[in-house]
Design a protein around this nucleic acid. Structure first.
Lengths: 141, 141
DNA sequence: GGTCAATGATTGACGGGTCAACTATAAATG
DNA sequence: CATTTATAGTTGACCCGTCAATCATTGACC
């Protein structure tokens, strides 16, 4: 049936598009999408625990640990234990981190603008809607 | 500006959706999307060189080598050198491979059906169109 | 025909993600 | 109060992709 062929093709398109976006995003902006997402969150919250971070970004806590460790080495982030609960560690942008993220965000804007070139406002709301319906559809798989 | 916020959000949605699709696809169908794509191709061509395979699937030749090696161990695939050119190796589905892929494809159909649940024909053509426009937009980055 | 470049495949190192096992701390329960 | 259970983070093993280096084979060119 034609329906199922189309459905397969759409899934394929999605996977393909993503495979192209990630490396290009990184080449254009100088940072991986996931890590920028992390920084972006840190930019807004001042100080945050890794668990909360993990839930916001939807990646594994192991991945969070590694990202944060590397960013710490790069001097973009500081960590400290929560005195009230020694289990949790707070993460916070350094001054250097705050500076750098501004540059990254500009690059990201340029990138997203290119990605959605010639998209009308209607196109944008439409795609956002369709994507989130897909997300809902597979939520409980 | 609101525009740029939306654009960012759409990129984020795309990345997120993909991050959810891949593991769920694998859990539901029993195989990773990339590998199923490989099998799918092999299903149609009978015998094919790894280079051609690589160009069709758009992944690195190193990745192809590893996939094919593992599938060979699993008994789903056979390989042989091209007698006319010892550099190229042909890959071919075994009987077991042909049997298995049928089951995988059924699972995949179920999965894609769920992914696009409640999508009208118009929704599908629309999303396909929007996705391919994005693809075009970043082609030469 | 011998050298040199191009091609196909493989391997190793790396980035980024998952899951499972583990440690340390805190909270709950008897 | 001691034991158990839950939570936060870390680490190791693995999958999947990239790039760079390597090897064997083939083809081209002097």
């Amino acid at each position: 049936m034609k329906m199922d062929y189309e459905a397969s093709a759409i899934l394929y398109q999605l996977l393909c598009l993503n495979k192209q976006i990630s490396p290009k995003f990184e080449r254009c902006t100088g940072i991986s999408p996931a890590r920028l997402e992390l920084l972006h969150l840190l930019f807004e919250v001042d100080e945050i625990s890794q668990t909360v971070l993990q839930k916001e970004v939807h990646i594994d806590s192991a991945a969070i640990t590694r990202h944060v460790q590397q960013m710490e080495v790069a001097g973009m982030v500081e960590r400290r234990r929560n005195p009230e609960d020694q289990r949790v560690t707070f993460v916070k942008l350094t001054e250097l981190g705050r500076e750098k993220i501004l540059a990254f965000r500009q690059e990201k804007e340029i990138f997203t603008k290119q990605l959605l070139k010639d998209f009308s406002g209607d196109d944008k709301t439409r795609i956002a809607e369709l994507l989130s319906r897909m997300q809902d559809n597979i939520r409980e798989l």
